[in-house]
Design a binder for these strands. Structure first.
Lengths: 315, 315
DNA sequence: TAAAGCGTTGCTCTAAAAGCAACGCTCAGG
DNA sequence: CCTGAGCGTTGCTTTTAGAGCAACGCTTTA
């Protein structure tokens, strides 16, 4: 009587669907009319279901069908499964509608202000249900976190683009010489010659930072030796350094919009291709599908940010 | 972005199965080896699942696949569904193993003792998880309850078999004249002539009882008129009636094994075909699949009960 | 740089589902 | 008692979906 076969085989959707339809409709033929499917199909599928579970599930009367004891159990199971499935679809729809989801951003230090004021504030306000993780990190760490999947989106200044990382947008943001507004350099015509800049005390970012990598490159290319009097992994420290003396440091203009607007600092262009062509990149992991929320945020970033070119935006 | 189609379509089992296998195995090809299915099949089924939910579910890397955010949600859903399904199978197996279930019996009065001592005691002891409902009723009610599905199994004495009712077993249990052990009738040779019995005060079962229907039939056939001095719907009352006087009543021998063994009453055979050929029937509703527990109990009843013939036991 | 491994795609083949017509049966009504 | 409508079921065919096979493009590793 008891089917000896392993119950490993999962329950087919059609079986349960027809089974449920037949019992709710009261008869196989009624279900047939409702579903616009031949009665024979329903009959057979129910039979398959029966021999799959190894028990009789419906009582076949001359007038319709009724559920057996086992049939009722399975019917309850079907209903529970159905609501669970609808709940699932609801969750996915919520996610699709950006009412739910998680986005992890990793951005270079100094650009957080810009991001928060430009895009993130609006986005967070419009989608309060979204969980947004904003991680400040050195450029190399931004790239690494995106590469390893810890961050969905990365914003990095002058990142070293490696295979597996796709830049969906970029904006040219020259690395400038940053000094106090009353600094003698401000009286020279721009772009400044590199030698002029190097006459003054120098503050540099630590190794591993995108800025520092650019500077190192320029150091090699120009066959000069930079002798920094201050090295820091904090942009704020560097800003503080130049704002309280006659020192100079290299920071992207975008990273100190606040100070420039308040006339606490000035950014002076430098006559060197590497400095001039520095770019901020919005990067993602190649071939990694973004969640709907992340996609939306990504497009907003690339649209509101003053990017000139968008290379391969594949959303 | 968002799939506009209705999410009415239910999720196919194969889709989820392959999807889960690929993610747990780490790669489609690994899952392919584990399931012994071509990788292309898995890839395609997952793609079908993806366009069914309208979202990307896995990240395709050069080295295997990973779940997206939506994929993880669906993965959790699959796991929950899986345990729910196993729970279901467990319930059904328990029911199949008679560890769970419900049986409703309807039996004629007077045969409960026999049943309880013969079969039910053992059965209940062996399957304590089973819910067994034992309903005493008049024969016609037994038949009706079985017919209407209120009782799974019926045990009826001389039931009027109607279409829709199947007798799975029957035992010949002649209707006897029941008297006190010292009654004058006991000194006559058996089978007694009907006229001899009718000379004594008569106690009869109420109308609607199987016994009474038999008696009525005999009354018509023998062209005699029975004048009962006591009519009761309680066998116990009838027994009491004959045990305390010189009255006589008609009861099946099997209904008073206790009293016979204790020599409180004696059952005397009567020379009439209707009385002689009375039968107890075990009946079920035609075309009604019994639960495993009910099936088991039914077979035990038909085996342990002293039935001579079993007509169409279709379990 | 070459080889191994991955997911994917076009094609063919097989197995499952669906449609169709007919049968046997139960059950309500004349 | 009998008839007819309605039901579930069964053999058959047609259609669809799943599965196998070989090859391609790609990423990752030695």
């Amino acid at each position: 009587m008891a089917q000896s076969g392993t119950t490993e085989a999962h329950l087919n959707v059609r079986w349960l669907h027809y089974f449920h339809a037949a019992l709710t409709a009261g008869s196989i033929r009624a279900a047939s009319d409702r579903l616009d499917v031949e009665p024979s199909v329903i009959s057979r599928q129910i039979r398959q279901l029966e021999q799959a579970v190894g028990m009789s599930l419906i009582e076949r009367h001359g007038r319709g069908v009724k559920a057996t004891e086992a049939g009722n159990i399975l019917l309850d199971f079907y209903r529970e499964r159905d609501v669970a499935e609808q709940t699932l679809f609801g969750q996915l729809a919520e996610m699709d509608g950006l009412q739910r989801g998680h986005i992890s951003l990793s951005i270079s230090e100094g650009y957080s202000d810009q991001l928060m004021s430009g895009v993130m504030n609006d986005f967070c306000a419009r989608h309060p249900q979204l969980t947004i993780e904003l991680n400040l990190a050195a450029v190399n760490d931004v790239v690494r976190q995106v590469y390893e999947g810890q961050a969905h989106i990365g914003v990095a200044y002058a990142p070293r683009l490696i295979p597996g990382i796709t830049s969906v947008a970029s904006a040219r943001q020259p690395l400038c010489a940053v000094v106090h507004p009353l600094h003698p350099l401000t009286r020279l015509p721009q772009p400044l010659a590199l030698d002029e800049v190097l006459k003054w005390p120098l503050g540099l970012a630590s190794h591993g930072y995108g800025i520092r990598q650019l500077i190192d490159a320029v150091e090699v290319m120009s066959k000069r030796h930079f002798r920094p009097s201050l090295v820091s992994n904090s942009l704020a420290t560097l800003k503080q350094y130049v704002s309280s003396g006659n020192g100079v440091t290299f920071i992207g203009q975008v990273a100190l919009l606040h100070e420039i607007r308040r006339q606490q600092l000035v950014a002076l262009k430098i006559d060197h291709p590497v400095f001039a062509e520095a770019e901020t990149h919005v990067i993602v992991r190649q071939h990694r599908p973004l969640s709907p929320a992340a996609k939306q945020l990504l497009t907003e970033i690339t649209h509101l940010w003053p990017f000139d070119g968008q290379s391969g935006l594949s959303v």
